[in-house]
Write a protein that binds this DNA or RNA. Structure first.
Length: 287
DNA sequence: AAGAGGCCCTGATAGC
DNA sequence: TGCTATCAGGGCCTCT
């Protein structure tokens, strides 16, 4: 599910809800996530304050009082629900579920605060929680990651040198977190459509102009998605109870067999499995 | 070193 | 209706 824009929306929601709040209690109902939830997890969080919530790539970073961090990755199906105890009414935020209520199953972790609690739900259990004890370890955790799209170091010079001699196709690099951080399967297709570049094109064949396009359009697509509140294939809700709507702006994703949206293009949107993931592109204008 | 492919899981949907 | 097969937005691991 969640790529950079969706995780950004979740981050904003969490900051509104839990920053500066103190953790009263933690309940882990199932430790078997993508990574085993460490045994120290509950005790480590208890009585610490959430100073703020940041995001790097598709990771949420909870800054804890005392200098530690809690990383959260939502995997494919992870959702975070905030439940307000005082009002006794459940409401969700940052959820990809189509119900405003908490799902019945797969509520693996609860972080309980004074008047509300955070519930982590994840049917496929590809998400995970990690404790990072200090800033040095945090930096180390992300040292193998590529720049984020908005980083000024992510520019055509970087892209061109990274692609030198690379035989792999472009699509694969866009979802490769060691090249660029935060792009996933949906936005990779959307970005390449805006660039008018075929996802199957070998990376080494890109010229400087095309590298520029890649940089500009990566930023453009992700920024638009954030502004629209993320994409919801299921009914994504943000903190205000609004659904994200970027899926209505998809140019290629989920549009197999439909006409290309470009004015003078007579092409059709094709779906093809590229590097084991479905990839959507126009068979005419993406060269 | 780089690239291809498999695997971790459950649930929704398509096809028979 | 009820079965089975396929696919899903991520990332890590192994093998060649």
């Amino acid at each position: 599910m969640p790529e950079l824009p969706e995780v950004e929306i979740v981050k904003q929601s969490l900051n509104k809800n839990i920053s500066s709040k103190k953790v009263k209690k933690v309940i882990v109902r199932n430790r078997n996530l993508r990574l085993k939830v460490p045994l120290i997890f509950e005790k480590y969080l208890q009585n610490r304050k959430i100073i703020k919530v940041e995001r790097f790539s598709k990771y949420l970073i909870l800054y804890l009082s005392g200098g530690g961090f809690c990383l959260i990755h939502l995997g494919m199906s992870g959702t975070i629900h905030i439940i307000n105890k005082k009002k006794k009414s459940l409401y969700t935020n940052a959820s990809f579920y189509n119900s405003p209520l908490l799902p019945k199953n797969h509520n693996h972790i609860e972080i309980i605060f004074e008047n509300l609690k955070l519930v982590y739900n994840d049917p496929r259990r590809f998400g995970f929680f990690q404790i990072i004890k200090n800033k040095t370890d945090l930096i180390k955790r992300f040292e193998k990651f590529g720049y984020e799209p908005f980083d000024k170091n992510f520019n055509s010079k970087y892209v061109l040198s990274f692609f030198k001699g690379k035989e792999k196709n472009l699509k694969k690099f866009l979802i490769d977190q060691s090249f660029i951080s935060g792009i996933g399967n949906i936005y990779a297709s959307e970005i390449l459509y805006l660039c008018k570049i075929n996802p199957n094109k070998k990376a080494k064949l890109l010229n400087k102009n095309e590298c520029d396009l890649l940089v500009i359009n990566s930023r453009k697509v992700l920024l638009r998605a954030i502004r629209k509140g993320g994409s919801s294939i299921k009914d994504f809700k943000n903190i205000d109870g609004n659904s994200g709507s970027f899926q209505d702006n998809f140019n290629v994703y989920f549009r197999e067999g439909l006409n290309c949206k470009r004015d003078k293009c007579k092409g059709k949107i094709k779906k093809k499995i590229i590097s084991n993931r479905s990839t959507f592109f126009c068979n005419s204008c993406q060269k």
